[in-house]
Design a protein around this nucleic acid. Sequence first.
RNA 1: GGGCGGAUAGCUCAGCCGGGAGAGCGCUGCCCUUACAAGGCAGAGGUCACAGGUUCGAUCCCUGUUCCGCCUACCA
Length: 943
Amino acid sequence: MSQIPKAYSPQAAEDRWYETWSAEGFFAARDASDRPAFSIVIPPPNVTGSLHMGHALNATLQDVLVRWKRMAGFNALWLPGTDHAGIATQNVVEKQLAGEGTDRHRLGRADFIKRVWKWKEASGGQIIRQLKRLGASCDWPRERFTMDEGLSRAVREVFVRLFEEGLVYRGSYIVNWCPRCHTALSDLEVEHEERKGKLYFVRYPAADGGPGVEVATTRPETMLGDTAVAVHPDDDRYKGKVGLVLALPLTGRKITVIADPAVSPEFGTGAVKVTPAHDPADFEIGRRHNLPEITVIGDDGRMTAEAGEAFAGLDRVECREKVAAALSAEGLLAAAQDHLHAVGHCYRCKTVVEPLVKDQWFVKVAPLAGPAIEAVESGRIRIVPRNWEKTYFEWMRNIRDWCISRQIWWGHRIPAWYCGDCHGERIRLMGRWGDGGTGKTSTTYTQLRTNGLSHEKIVGDMGTLIVDRDVPAVVSREDNPACPSCGGRNLLQDPDVLDTWFSSALWPFSTLGWPDKTPALETFYPTSTLVTGFDILFFWVARMIMMGLKFMGDVPFRDVYIHALVRDAEGRKMSKSKGNVIDPLDIVDKYGADAFRFTLAAMAAQGRDIKLSEERIEGYRNFANKIWNASRFVLMNVPPDLSTRNLTRETLRAGTLADRWIVSRLNAVAAEVNQALTEVRFNEASAALYHFIWHEYCDWYIELAKISLFGEDASAKRQTQTVLVMVLETTLRLLHPFMPFITEEIRQALPPLCRTQSPRGETIMLAPFPAPDGSLIDLQAEAEMSKVMGAIGALRTLRSEMSVPPSLEVTAVFSARDENVAALLGEHGGEIARLARCRPEIGVGLPRPSKSAVQILPEMEVYLPLEGVVRIEDEIARLGKEAEKVDKEVFGLAKKFENPDFVSKAPPEVVENGRARLAELAEKRQKIGESIARLSEIGREPS
RNA sequence: GGGCGGAUAGCUCAGCCGGGAGAGCGCUGCCCUUACAAGGCAGAGGUCACAGGUUCGAUCCCUGUUCCGCCUACCA
């Protein structure tokens, strides 16, 4: 007899089992193995971050897959790790410094980076600990970090090779600049948001004082940097104006009207002011027409000296007002109307980004995109759900070059150097010299050397440097390369670091040891499945595919499973800045990891977002408790020396109806779960398990088992015990990937000879995942059971509707349609008696007792004698309602048959089905009518 | 502007290849029946957003409309 407690309490079990699994090395995959490989690399979370709902969902789904495959006999690897999250992490540490009244420039680059590493060491373990609390079965000794030595080597190798092939280049282009983070951003890192603004109509007079051109703009402050006005070449309104010289208001600069097809005649006035230095579209036009690029907005988002005395130093937004006012004062502001337009914001700090012309490093993406498109088109990579493929293609086909340099310090330093000896005049540095350490003024390298500073001193104290764009870069796999032209060693490394996503793009192979040829790489690449959210489909997935194909010559993964985003009540992404986050760990504390995991899996329907509700989690907590108590019951009713070892197909097929039924259902569910997991339909797998455990095993099988468990027949009892435990044990294994802790906890309490053995260790984790045995699917048993269940249900309904107390044992009449049904019911009279709490009278065409309530089933009629327990009128009313229901269905069905086409064109089995149903309904309706008539008669007699 | 998705029970959502509408929670009634009140048994509740079309038959396929969400975009 077991002593386990009445309610399941997750905490203790979770800690204990995770500890054990980990210590025993059950999570470990083998670099070399006879078994087929299954591998997943985790989408690396931000190292200094903490677990949010998205991570929890992501990790749960991966763990379900890995645990499933591991049990199914695969050499399963789930490789964990974290990401250095350049801008985000740097921002955190900079905020700390600000709190201490200092900044990174005073600290200097080297000390700043030390400081970030310190922060990483201090806080970096958090998210990993949190993943463990969810039960994540990662191979922890293989944990990697994007800034690891090995991964850094991979990053450098890739950069150098791409540079050598001309796929990485340095150039001066317009980029998205965050004036707060002080760095360039890739197009993807800019979030567009609709903002209410104004569309200003401004008159630009001709230089000769004649009629000029009116332009429309949302950003009047940029006019200070205008170097042309453009119109569409085919726009008749402006045919005569092309070539006209205008006097740019407020500055007096002479600018020309040019024609360019990029201008859309429909918008505004059809004439657009061109500011090549501050607008991406204008930049393109400017380059096409060789226009000057006048920078009027600086790195800090304030107007530069070029903007003119009246505006220099003003913030962009302030300046907008001032310019509008100034134009208005000169009578040049024709109109200002409300206008809705998309404004780019920094994805990190939400500051409005400023397009600026900057020297940056880029990846030429088009040559890499081609094969990446082909890989998905050909099906070598399968994206699930399929509809994401379209989004993927759309983006890949319109892809633009990727700006990979970031003007921050935390990240992979770009392996490019500039020779101070050859080009010292054209390299300007900012650092902790000469200006009190603010790092705000710059000096040329040559000047610093002349002033007596050593090269080492300069490098050590360097904050950043500005290199003329024609100074050649020396790109090298090794640090401190020699200058290829002068052979000197006085080279200065490019101050920029790489976009974090550059290193993430290599994740599926860099984590397995690349560029070395390791056994792990051999075994686990390509990985099997990538599980991720659609929000990083472009950021990460697409880039991994490009890099994997380029450097491994093969796709990085076979399947990409795109899961939903966990959103808040209003359907918005949860984010710290919005303050709408629910901490997954709070949920784990409150309801247990198993309940939480099961909830996430159950809600992970393909293609739909998850709006998480706590009630739902509570429901699955109750489910865990249900399993717990069912197991308690089983353990209380089986001897500790029980064995299921001798249970063969033959003994199972020779079992009782209930045994054959539950075994059949178990195998059907095993088939469903396997199938659903194969198709990554987590919700279907969990729903099948939920229904089977609660509504078949608990509601019916356990109740039926009680008869022989509490009965006299020792051999029947032993047989029931065996099946009871076998089904439970198998179910636990099916459930384990979803609810790892409770399943292990219960399995360990089962009689030792009832546990399916695992190849190594005493754990459910490595025990075989149940494969369905088709020969045990017994449709006849299922059909028979459903008749018995129907009989029991019918009587229960009658009792309930007639308000017959459950404790009152009644006599009930089961009048079968034919001998077969009567025999079946007769055989299971004991079951009917117990589960419906009655003395059953069973036979064919039994007479109906007077004053009885009736349920009419296809196979039988069930009578409950009322004997003054219930008022006859109640039963008449109830039957009246039922008759209405039947009439409604008959009406619908009859309409179908009125249509001759239905009979001739519909498949025969559908027609036959309909006919049978109609006949059934007609008979039922007639019997109800008879019952009502009889009861009405009786009702008139004195009772 | 382009693309994608959603609208099904009071709430949150399933519903794979068109053929008798489901779950969880909530609600109603009865019940502490020796696994479980985090429970048992029974029940109420839906013109499957709207309008057309295809079909013998549409929640499901097609077209359009309305509302909502998301992604993407150089109409300033």
